[in-house]
């Protein structure tokens, strides 16, 4: 599997906000169908990594390639067209719009003819969303909103789904459910990059993991190994 072109590859990424050096020489690989998690505390550069992948922030040096193609200078909309999607931090739903409309916005770049099929796929995954389709997204509960956010991202039929802090602002029982859904979507063949502070839960479902600390990737490896790693346990699991 290692010799195929990776779905996403970051090579020697250096990102700055003005004078401040955020990401320092980051390298990362995600292969097709993989579930990778990116761990790190506050201000470790997790969100910047995501923004760099999406093209909201441009790195000063280094390349981002998608399916072997260099997309470092390609705008966000084109990257999404080529198979990326994101579930943003705090979900960021369009509150005064209905669930259906929110989902439709996720498929903005898809041809109209495919809409029906995408809706069916998402409703099959989240039957609850079908029941709530004409309800305003802002009136849903936190767990339901997470489903809408996830469904909205899946509407673009991505090959790679980026998730920014899916556990944020959810009750523990919903976090568990949320990760079940992540696993389920991943099993359907979508590669995923899950950015999380919650190391325990995310590593338990992930194939591999990266650990960021003040802009550097300090650890990487198979999820099982990382779970056993003494340093990581001390830093994140509090044991």
């Amino acid at each position: 599997m290692d010799e195929t072109t990776p779905l996403l590859q970051l090579e020697g990424i250096n990102t700055y906000y003005g004078q401040i050096h955020i990401l320092q020489d980051s390298n990362m690989v995600i292969r097709e169908g993989e579930l990778v998690c990116l761990l790190g505390g506050n201000a470790s550069g997790k969100s910047t990594t995501l923004k760099t992948i999406l093209g909201i922030v441009r790195p000063r040096t280094g390349t981002v390639s998608l399916n072997g193609e260099d997309v470092t200078r390609v705008p966000t909309a084109h990257r999404i067209k080529r198979g990326m999607a994101i579930v943003p931090e705090n979900r960021r739903l369009f509150g005064p719009m209905t669930v259906r409309e929110n989902l439709e916005m996720g498929a903005y770049l898809r041809p109209k003819a495919d809409l029906r099929e995408e809706f069916d796929r998402v409703y099959e995954l989240f039957p609850l969303l079908y029941e709530r389709r004409s309800q305003l997204a802002g009136t849903l509960s936190g767990g339901e909103q997470q489903m809408v956010a996830m469904g909205r991202a899946l509407m673009s039929k991505p090959k790679l789904l980026l998730m920014d802090e899916p556990s944020m602002g959810l009750a523990p029982v919903l976090v568990e459910r949320s990760f079940e859904i992540i696993k389920q979507v991943n099993d359907a063949g979508v590669a995923m990059l899950v950015v999380e502070q919650n190391a325990n839960v995310s590593l338990s479902i992930a194939d591999r993991g990266y650990v960021l600390s003040t802009g550097r990737i300090v650890l990487e490896g198979r999820a099982e190994d990382l779970l056993e790693n003494e340093d990581l346990r001390k830093a994140y699991l509090g044991r």
């Binding site: 999406l54 909201i56 966000t76 909309a77 999404i80 067209k81 994101i86 943003p88 960021r92 739903l93 369009f94 509150g95 005064p96 719009m97 409309e101 929110n102 439709e104 916005m105 996720g106 903005y108 770049l109 909205r152 673009s156």
Partner: peptide, 17 residues
């Protein structure tokens, strides 16, 4: 609908493509 979503959350609209 795209205008409405843009007005609600420009960043989210942008990452929807």
């Amino acid at each position: 609908r795209a205008w409405r979503s843009l007005r609600e959350d420009a960043l989210a609209a942008e990452v929807m493509g």
